[in-house]
């Protein structure tokens, strides 16, 4: 095992599907103990990137190393040291929880497999459903099983493709607490998500759109780099107001949150002028720009470029 190398180091990975680039020029570096979040709209190439990293897809161009192994030539070795949780549940529905885990453990040729399977089932609260067919589990439990299967062999790198889609908030919190615990123990984790609260819990983020990396860095850095100004507007009929503000000078986004409206823009003077022209029943106050505003702004900019 190569301990002194970064968990992932890839340069300019590109992948085409029938002529269309699904990922272009992806360069990444992930250290051990780090949680890297992949953020991007549907079809932006997150899953494709994951698959290239674990050797399921061959990149058309670019090169790199996972855990010190060449992703083109040595993917047999990579597979032994990574845990991959696929976006779609991909364990066997006609096997029980225990059988699924035992199968994965056997394929990894673990010593003392039974004990390890029992251990991981206890760790992830699967012991009580050990004899259930995977097809009988609810969505959240399937996710748990998939995570356990990705961790049976104590991998050094964990790839999680939208692991918490459809999972309840409490379970999500536990899940992320556990991820931090694993990262603390030295695991490198790559996780894709559509939830901003989860993105904020990552050490670093990569924002993808149409296969291209738009931003890379911590959540704070990404927000700061957008150089956005946000204001909150109170009052009634905010949905109508949001409509009428859209497209006005300086307004990039106008989003209703319950009973206040957040207006975001990059040109401060124009935005202030536009908001000043509002009737007095709409009180305006400055606000913090969150990751969500920054991300949506980023995606909006990208749309305009096209």
């Amino acid at each position: 095992m190569k301990q002194d190398v970064p968990a992932i180091e890839v340069k300019n990975l590109s992948k085409k599907f029938s002529g269309r680039l699904a990922v272009r020029d992806l360069s990444l570096r992930v250290n051990r103990g780090e949680i890297l979040g992949f953020l991007g709209p549907n079809g932006s190439g997150k899953t494709t990137a994951f698959r290239m990293l674990c050797g399921l897809l061959t990149p058309d161009s670019g090169e790199g190393y996972c855990l010190g192994y060449d992703i083109r030539r040595e993917n047999a070795w990579i597979k032994r040291h990574i845990g991959y949780m696929t976006q779609r549940f991909s364990l066997w529905e006609d096997l029980t929880v225990r059988e699924n885990l035992a199968f994965v453990a056997q394929i990894h040729r673990l010593k003392d497999r039974r004990r390890r399977v029992r251990e991981i089932m206890a760790e992830y609260g699967l012991a009580e459903v050990a004899g259930e067919l995977a097809s009988h589990l609810s969505g959240g439990w399937k996710q748990r099983l998939a995570l356990a299967a990705a961790l049976v062999h104590q991998p050094e790198l964990l790839l999680l493709d939208e692991p918490t889609a459809g999972v309840d908030p409490a379970a999500r919190r536990d899940f992320w607490d556990n991820l931090h615990h694993l990262a603390h123990a030295g695991l490198a984790i790559l996780v894709s998500t559509h939830y901003m609260d989860e993105a904020e819990r990552c050490h670093k983020l990569v924002c993808l759109a149409a296969g291209r990396v738009l931003e890379q860095g911590t959540a704070r850095e990404i927000v700061a780099r957008q150089n956005l100004h946000a204001y909150q507007v109170g009052g009634k009929d905010l949905a109508l107001l949001a409509r009428s503000l859209a497209g006005k000078p300086g307004v990039a986004e106008a989003i209703v949150f319950g009973n206040c409206l957040t207006v975001v823009g990059s040109q401060r003077e124009e935005l202030v002028a536009t908001l000043a022209s509002l009737p007095p029943e709409y009180p305006v106050s400055p606000a913090e720009t969150g990751l969500e505003e920054a991300f949506i702004y980023l995606m909006g900019q990208r749309e305009k470029e096209r």
């Binding site: 597979k79 032994r80 991959y84 696929t86 991909s90 394929i107």
Partner: peptide, 8 residues
């Protein structure tokens, strides 16, 4: 198949 191929 994705799981099968991701395993060693």
């Amino acid at each position: 198949l994705e799981m099968l191929l991701a395993l060693p």
